[in-house]
Deep mutational scan, measured.
Amino acid sequence: ADDEVAKLLVDAYRKNDEDKLEEVKKRYNISDEQVKRLIRKVL
């Protein structure tokens, strides 16, 4: 599931889509710190 979330985050990140990032964060209840970590893992 982590990889799936990471893909969604990276996708939103690449598109610079703040709304999507927020949506994913809320849906999976993850912190900014986790977001950064997941994005770093993929990029």
Score class of each variant (00 low, 15 high):
residue 1 A to R: 11
residue 17 D to A: 04
residue 26 K to Q: 10
residue 7 K to D: 06
residue 11 D to Y: 01
residue 43 L to I: 11
residue 13 Y to F: 12
residue 27 R to N: 06
residue 31 S to I: 02
residue 35 V to R: 01
residue 41 K to H: 12
residue 38 L to Q: 02
residue 28 Y to S: 01
residue 8 L to A: 10
residue 39 I to R: 01
residue 23 E to W: 09
residue 24 V to K: 00
residue 6 A to P: 03
residue 24 V to T: 06
residue 2 D to K: 08
residue 5 V to S: 03
residue 4 E to T: 10
residue 10 V to R: 06
residue 25 K to P: 00
residue 24 V to L: 15
residue 20 K to R: 12
residue 19 D to W: 09
residue 1 A to C: 13
residue 18 E to F: 15
residue 21 L to D: 00
residue 37 R to P: 01
residue 32 D to W: 15
residue 11 D to V: 02
residue 40 R to A: 14
residue 5 V to D: 02
residue 29 N to R: 06
residue 4 E to V: 11
residue 9 L to P: 00
residue 4 E to H: 12
residue 31 S to R: 02
residue 12 A to P: 01
residue 8 L to G: 02
residue 41 K to G: 11
residue 37 R to I: 14
residue 17 D to P: 01
residue 16 N to C: 13
residue 30 I to N: 00
residue 27 R to K: 14
residue 18 E to R: 15
residue 5 V to M: 09
residue 31 S to T: 12
residue 36 K to S: 08
residue 22 E to I: 09
residue 22 E to R: 12
residue 1 A to L: 15
residue 18 E to Y: 15
residue 4 E to Y: 15
residue 10 V to P: 00
residue 33 E to H: 05
residue 16 N to K: 11
residue 29 N to Q: 10
residue 35 V to P: 00
residue 20 K to Q: 10
residue 30 I to T: 01
residue 36 K to H: 11
residue 3 D to L: 10
residue 18 E to T: 15
residue 40 R to S: 14
residue 25 K to Q: 06
residue 25 K to M: 08
residue 30 I to K: 02
residue 12 A to M: 03
residue 23 E to R: 06
residue 41 K to L: 12
residue 33 E to A: 10
residue 28 Y to G: 01
residue 18 E to S: 14
residue 30 I to P: 00
residue 38 L to P: 00
residue 3 D to W: 14
residue 38 L to H: 04
residue 9 L to R: 00
residue 11 D to M: 03
residue 18 E to I: 15
residue 12 A to N: 01
residue 42 V to P: 02
residue 26 K to F: 05
residue 43 L to G: 05
residue 27 R to P: 00
residue 8 L to R: 05
residue 38 L to N: 01
residue 23 E to P: 00
residue 20 K to M: 14
residue 17 D to L: 06
residue 30 I to G: 00
residue 33 E to F: 04
residue 19 D to Q: 14
residue 36 K to Y: 04
residue 20 K to F: 10
residue 32 D to M: 05
residue 2 D to W: 15
residue 43 L to P: 03
residue 24 V to H: 04
residue 32 D to L: 05
residue 16 N to R: 11
residue 23 E to D: 08
residue 24 V to F: 08
residue 20 K to Y: 10
residue 42 V to A: 14
residue 30 I to C: 04
residue 21 L to E: 00
residue 34 Q to Y: 11
residue 33 E to K: 06
residue 6 A to F: 11
residue 8 L to I: 10
residue 13 Y to N: 02
residue 40 R to F: 10
residue 34 Q to K: 06
residue 3 D to E: 11
residue 22 E to C: 08
residue 41 K to T: 11
residue 5 V to L: 13
residue 11 D to P: 01
residue 18 E to D: 10
residue 6 A to D: 05
residue 28 Y to D: 01
residue 13 Y to W: 15
residue 13 Y to T: 04
residue 13 Y to A: 06
residue 13 Y to E: 02
residue 20 K to D: 04
residue 8 L to Y: 03
residue 7 K to R: 13
residue 6 A to L: 14
residue 35 V to T: 07
residue 15 K to Y: 08
residue 42 V to E: 11
residue 13 Y to K: 03
residue 37 R to A: 14
residue 1 A to Y: 15
residue 14 R to H: 12
residue 5 V to I: 14
residue 5 V to H: 03
residue 8 L to T: 05
residue 4 E to K: 09
residue 22 E to P: 00
residue 22 E to M: 11
residue 11 D to R: 02
residue 16 N to T: 03
residue 7 K to I: 10
residue 37 R to N: 13
residue 32 D to T: 07
residue 39 I to W: 02
residue 4 E to A: 10
residue 7 K to S: 08
residue 36 K to E: 13
residue 15 K to H: 13
residue 42 V to M: 14
residue 10 V to N: 04
residue 39 I to D: 00
residue 8 L to E: 09
residue 18 E to K: 15
residue 16 N to V: 03
residue 35 V to F: 13
residue 4 E to L: 12
residue 3 D to A: 12
residue 1 A to P: 14
residue 11 D to Q: 05
residue 25 K to W: 00
residue 28 Y to E: 01
residue 40 R to M: 13
residue 1 A to W: 15
residue 35 V to G: 04
residue 32 D to E: 08
residue 24 V to C: 02
residue 17 D to E: 06
residue 34 Q to V: 11
residue 30 I to R: 01
residue 30 I to A: 01
residue 34 Q to T: 11
residue 33 E to M: 06
residue 20 K to C: 08
residue 38 L to M: 10
residue 22 E to Y: 07
residue 26 K to W: 03
residue 6 A to G: 08
residue 26 K to N: 09
residue 13 Y to G: 01
residue 39 I to S: 00
residue 42 V to H: 11
residue 38 L to K: 02
residue 19 D to L: 13
residue 6 A to N: 07
residue 29 N to P: 00
residue 43 L to H: 05
residue 9 L to K: 00
residue 32 D to Q: 05
residue 3 D to Q: 08
residue 2 D to T: 12
residue 18 E to A: 14
residue 23 E to G: 04
residue 32 D to H: 05
residue 20 K to H: 06
residue 14 R to M: 15
residue 22 E to L: 11
residue 40 R to V: 12
residue 5 V to G: 04
residue 1 A to D: 13
residue 2 D to S: 11
residue 15 K to R: 13
residue 13 Y to M: 11
residue 27 R to G: 03
residue 33 E to L: 05
residue 28 Y to M: 04
residue 5 V to P: 04
residue 33 E to V: 07
residue 2 D to R: 09
residue 36 K to I: 13
residue 42 V to D: 05
residue 10 V to L: 15
residue 4 E to I: 13
residue 20 K to I: 10
residue 16 N to G: 15
residue 32 D to C: 08
residue 43 L to R: 05
residue 43 L to M: 11
residue 30 I to Y: 06
residue 33 E to T: 06
residue 22 E to A: 11
residue 35 V to S: 08
residue 13 Y to L: 13
residue 3 D to F: 11
residue 27 R to Y: 07
residue 25 K to S: 03
residue 41 K to E: 12
residue 6 A to Y: 12
residue 25 K to G: 01
residue 37 R to M: 08
residue 28 Y to Q: 01
residue 15 K to T: 13
residue 16 N to H: 13
residue 16 N to D: 07
residue 33 E to P: 03
residue 27 R to S: 06
residue 21 L to F: 08
residue 16 N to E: 07
residue 4 E to N: 10
residue 17 D to Y: 03
residue 31 S to Q: 04
residue 3 D to M: 11
residue 26 K to E: 07
residue 37 R to V: 10
residue 13 Y to R: 02
residue 10 V to K: 05
residue 1 A to I: 15
residue 15 K to A: 14
residue 43 L to A: 06
residue 15 K to W: 09
residue 2 D to H: 10
residue 18 E to W: 15
residue 7 K to M: 11
residue 17 D to M: 05
residue 9 L to S: 00
residue 10 V to S: 06
residue 1 A to S: 13
residue 36 K to N: 11
residue 35 V to Q: 02
residue 29 N to Y: 04
